[in-house]
């Protein structure tokens, strides 16, 4: 069996989903049931003291691995604070480090992300850092104790696809850790593209949550991730410049 192991946990499903932006959060449970998604991200926020929505955890099946993010953190210190609070909520010790101070493109700050990763890995967290694809930063995250690295495909929520393909390909080739493409993946074909490169998994939120039919889109992503993974394992044939006939070039019927 082709399994992915992260932080000692064996995962069968290589599609991770985010729980943000769903117009109807109750769809999350249906999506998990249909696709077998095992990892779901959440965020931690101040409660609305004047009454608010139902808690997101009510919509995420209990057997899912919860992956709280540190969104809102602008530096390592804030990310560490959020991660510790998330763990104190009693939903496991996984954390997606997200340190962002750029409000236009929401690009992650690799230096602060490395610092936070080092501290939290030391404290026993399973750390999945969201990162700008860069080989030196990836190596540093590896040394800092990350359980996987999560390079972006394109800016968060843009649905623009795997714009960072060449560097992601190099990270996959050069890093020991699982590479999970996070952010920007807008269509199933782009998820398949990441998986064909050898990505360990992809994390998709906006593309599913904001689709006209989120459940159907989640199914499409699930199939694309499986197809891409199989294609990677099957080892694609070589590409060539000129045509090579697939049918025999002898025994033609001639008049």
């Amino acid at each position: 069996m082709d399994k992915l192991i992260i932080g000692g946990k064996e995962l069968k499903n290589r599609l991770f989903i985010g729980s943000g932006k769903f117009a109807d959060e109750s769809l999350i449970g249906d999506i998990v049931a249909q696709t077998g998604v095992e990892v779901v991200t959440v965020a931690l926020r101040r409660v609305n003291l004047n009454g608010g929505k139902e808690n997101i955890l009510n919509y995420i099946p209990k057997d899912c691995v919860l992956l709280p993010n540190t969104s809102g953190a602008r530096n390592a210190e804030e990310a560490v604070r959020i991660a510790r609070l998330a763990r104190a909520a009693g939903c496991g010790n996984w954390v997606k480090i997200e340190v962002i101070s750029d409000n236009k493109y929401l690009l992650p700050d690799n230096n602060e992300t490395i610092k936070a990763t080092r501290i939290l890995a030391e404290e026993g967290f399973v750390v999945l850092p969201y990162m700008h694809p860069d080989l030196y930063a990836a190596k540093e995250l590896e040394r800092a104790g990350a359980a996987a690295i999560m390079p972006l495909g394109a800016p968060i929520g843009t649905n623009r696809g795997l714009k960072t393909k060449e560097i992601v390909r190099i990270l996959i080739e050069e890093c020991e850790l699982p590479v999970i493409v996070d952010a920007g993946i807008g269509k199933p074909s782009e998820a398949a593209e990441a998986m064909e490169l050898g990505a360990a998994a992809v994390l998709v939120n906006t593309a599913i949550a904001t689709a006209g039919n989120p459940a159907m889109m989640a199914n499409a992503f699930s199939q694309a991730v499986q197809a891409g993974r199989q294609a990677f394992l099957a080892q694609p044939g070589e590409t060539t410049e000129f045509a090579r006939a697939s049918s025999p070039l002898t025994g033609f019927l001639r008049s």
């Binding site: 729980s19 931690l44 808690n55 993010n69 609070l85």
Partner: peptide, 10 residues
């Protein structure tokens, strides 16, 4: 006091 809970997020 900071009182927090999980919300949907990516």
């Amino acid at each position: 006091l900071e009182i927090l809970s999980f919300v949907g997020g990516g």
